[in-house]
């Protein structure tokens, strides 16, 4: 441990209100660094990169725990661990891509400690849950002494490790809309069936080894085909290919309204390369990331629409 542990202080708040008060009060004299499972923080302390001297231990705050189904939205407390997510029956049924991402994070030990809120707050472009949350159009619930606020995931990342949150705000929960909820009826349009087709979810993280690996490329996707065989919902989010986790808007637009085919896939791949900006770094290189991003997109299309490659 290269950080001098004896010089560090940890504040243990009684409850969420106390935590918010402490966090707010700390802004003048060196901000308290929120500490949840510690799985990212301990790595930096071990290598001597001290993110701060004073920490705010959130682990015992019951208000930040628990998973609730609220009127079709799933609300996950910020301290929900990846083990809980991985094993949660409703998550597995309704958000298989999130369950898959949770199962790929670190190792089981890390999944037992690592939290959803922590993964978001750490804001690493390689954070494994982030592409899924982005594709699912999650909403981050933040709270400060001034009150609560909701930040859509699509507006969350301002830049490299820079979140659209105030320094005295804590992430309290993340809520996920049901991707298969029927869309609101448009005026004049008659619903033709009780159960519209389900959106296909996809998640794949590419590291070098099969566990305990940090992503070189991660792709999460949501794709729904209308009754006419055309894509009526397309969301593609990627990690580790830009300073932030991002939605591949150009690729999505190519897919939307199209009948997936080899030609559509090629156009989507080309658009995808405009969406992402990967670099050479310690884990991989730009070329590999560009190539694999396209390959994963194509794999996603193959899974989402078995007819696509035969067109």
């Amino acid at each position: 441990m290269r950080a001098a542990l004896s010089t560090l202080e940890v504040a243990r708040p009684r409850d969420l209100a106390h935590a918010l008060k402490l966090l707010h009060a700390s802004l003048d004299a060196g901000r308290l660094v929120p500490l949840a499972g510690g799985t990212d923080l301990f790595v930096t302390l071990n290598s001597g990169l001290v993110p701060g001297r004073r920490f705010l231990d959130l682990w015992s705050l019951r208000e930040l725990r628990g998973v609730r189904d609220q009127a079709g939205r799933l609300v996950l407390g910020a301290l929900t661990t990846f083990s809980e997510i991985r094993e949660h029956a409703l998550v597995r049924r309704r958000y298989p891509a999130l369950a898959a991402a949770a199962a790929e994070i670190g190792a089981w030990q890390v999944q037992n400690r690592g939290t959803l809120g922590g993964n978001i707050a750490n804001a690493s472009p390689a954070g494994d849950s982030l592409p899924v949350l982005l594709a699912l159009e999650a909403v981050v619930h933040a709270r400060s002494v001034r009150g609560t606020r909701e930040v859509p995931f699509t507006a969350l990342f301002r830049g490299y490790r820079d979140l659209a949150l105030e320094p005295d705000e804590l992430i309290t929960a993340v809520s996920l809309p049901d991707p298969d909820a029927p869309p609101p009826l448009r005026a004049g349009a008659a619903r033709r069936g009780a159960h519209p087709p389900r959106a296909q979810q996809f998640f794949r993280q590419v590291g070098t080894r099969r566990a305990q690996s940090i992503s070189k490329v991660a792709l999460a996707g949501l794709l729904r085909l209308g009754r006419d065989g055309r894509v009526d919902l397309a969301r593609v989010a990627l990690g580790s290919v830009a300073p932030v986790t991002l939605r591949a808007g150009r690729a999505e637009r190519v897919l939307l309204g199209a009948r997936p085919s080899a030609a559509v896939a090629a156009a989507a791949r080309a658009a995808l390369l405009e969406d992402i900006a990967p670099i050479d770094d310690i884990r991989s290189d730009r070329e590999y990331r560009r190539r694999v991003s396209g390959n994963l997109l194509e794999q996603f299309l193959r899974v989402a629409d078995p007819r696509f490659a035969r067109r």
Partner: peptide
């Protein structure tokens, strides 16, 4: 298959277990 020492300006760049990749039990 996995283990590659990566260098930057003559120094070992990936001198941590997160980036110097050895097989895990799953591998």
């Amino acid at each position: 298959l996995l283990e590659e020492v990566r260098w930057k300006d003559g120094r070992i760049w990936n001198h941590q277990l997160t980036n110097y990749i050895i097989p895990t039990a799953v591998d």
